[in-house]
Amino acid sequence: MKNVNRVFFCKSLSLVFLVPSFTRSHIRFTYSAAGASSPNRAIHCMASDSPQSGDGSVSSPPNVAAVPSSSSSSSASSAIDFLSLCTRLKTTPRAGWIKRDVKDPESIADHMYRMGLMALISSDIPGVNRDKCMKMAIVHDIAEAIVGDITPSCGISKEEKNRRESEALEHMCKLLGGGERAKEIAELWREYEENSSPEAKVVKDFDKVELILQALEYEQDQGKDLEEFFQSTAGKFQTNIGKAWASEIVSRRRKQH
């Protein structure tokens, strides 16, 4: 069979190939450095029949390989550096639970993850971007990867806490390499801190809802009395969804006492 070469030009790494009906085919990838600074990088893909040897047998197709440009290697390095730093969010327990002698307390990442789920399952709210809420939920405590979980009982002023976290966030964004993603993370974090948007108000309520839900679960599982967390959040919810979910949690708590 005569070799047939076809070239596909694709704008992203999510590629769909229509492979010809013949079965002995292979695909070879080469990376084009052209436009490497753009998020829509070009991938040149060549599909061809498997070459036959002189005796008619079919040779094994070559390994699929991707040859990254120096720019993508640098981007990958920044991403892994950033993610490696963020592992501290998975290993740092929430300080409030430690001080109350809770066994196996949740990590900062545990807390942010369930907040992300809250945003995911929440009903649509007029004027609120639910996708933005999900992003904000997984970003709002990200600076704690460096500064740790600073609580009111730590004796650190709000101004000093914000200064430390702002510096930590700046460092993390530089580690990520700057650019659009780093800018987005910084903007989401500041918006949350300043409570300056409808999304920030929703996510701040989710922060408190997740806190009291976790407190209720620790009370049920470990026989703790964590009334102080319910007292500290009472009357501080800003949105209807926050008030409704908090009321449901408090109602369930009353039934078990």
Score class of each variant (00 low, 15 high):
residue 99 K to L: 15
residue 161 K to W: 03
residue 23 T to G: 10
residue 32 S to A: 14
residue 80 I to H: 01
residue 78 S to T: 08
residue 95 A to E: 11
residue 31 Y to W: 02
residue 116 G to E: 13
residue 235 G to A: 15
residue 162 N to I: 01
residue 91 T to M: 09
residue 159 E to S: 09
residue 120 L to I: 04
residue 54 G to F: 10
residue 52 Q to Y: 08
residue 50 S to N: 14
residue 5 N to P: 00
residue 45 C to R: 01
residue 85 L to K: 14
residue 18 L to P: 00
residue 40 N to F: 10
residue 6 R to T: 07
residue 12 S to E: 09
residue 188 L to A: 04
residue 173 C to H: 00
residue 118 M to V: 01
residue 250 V to E: 13
residue 219 E to A: 11
residue 185 I to G: 00
residue 112 M to A: 04
residue 92 T to N: 06
residue 114 R to M: 14
residue 85 L to H: 01
residue 256 Q to V: 13
residue 124 D to V: 06
residue 256 Q to D: 03
residue 251 S to E: 15
residue 220 Q to T: 09
residue 186 A to C: 04
residue 152 P to K: 15
residue 29 F to K: 01
residue 13 L to R: 08
residue 196 S to K: 09
residue 235 G to Y: 13
residue 106 E to M: 14
residue 199 E to N: 04
residue 81 D to W: 03
residue 232 S to V: 10
residue 126 P to L: 05
residue 58 V to K: 02
residue 171 H to P: 00
residue 252 R to C: 10
residue 50 S to Y: 06
residue 101 D to T: 07
residue 114 R to E: 07
residue 210 E to H: 12
residue 115 M to S: 04
residue 68 P to D: 06
residue 1 M to G: 08
residue 24 R to A: 12
residue 155 G to V: 07
residue 86 C to H: 02
residue 41 R to F: 05
residue 158 K to C: 01
residue 66 A to Y: 08
residue 133 C to M: 06
residue 129 N to V: 03
residue 89 L to P: 00
residue 255 K to S: 14
residue 124 D to P: 00
residue 142 I to K: 02
residue 188 L to I: 03
residue 247 S to E: 15
residue 90 K to A: 10
residue 139 V to L: 01
residue 29 F to A: 03
residue 71 S to K: 09
residue 235 G to K: 10
residue 243 K to E: 06
residue 171 H to Y: 08
residue 35 G to Q: 11
residue 11 K to L: 10
residue 13 L to G: 04
residue 2 K to H: 14
residue 157 S to Q: 11
residue 83 L to A: 15
residue 150 I to H: 02
residue 240 N to L: 11
residue 223 G to W: 05
residue 208 K to W: 03
residue 32 S to G: 02
residue 57 S to E: 13
residue 204 K to C: 03
residue 99 K to E: 08
residue 213 L to H: 15
residue 245 W to S: 05
residue 85 L to V: 10
residue 65 A to T: 07
residue 69 S to C: 10
residue 239 T to Q: 11
residue 162 N to E: 05
residue 45 C to H: 00
residue 18 L to I: 07
residue 247 S to M: 12
residue 234 A to H: 14
residue 39 P to E: 10
residue 67 V to T: 14
residue 72 S to D: 06
residue 40 N to G: 02
residue 200 A to Y: 03
residue 24 R to F: 04
residue 169 L to K: 03
residue 192 Y to Q: 06
residue 38 S to C: 05
residue 44 H to S: 02
residue 231 Q to V: 13
residue 60 S to C: 01
residue 7 V to Q: 06
residue 180 E to I: 08
residue 245 W to A: 13
residue 128 V to R: 05
residue 252 R to M: 06
residue 201 K to L: 13
residue 1 M to Y: 15
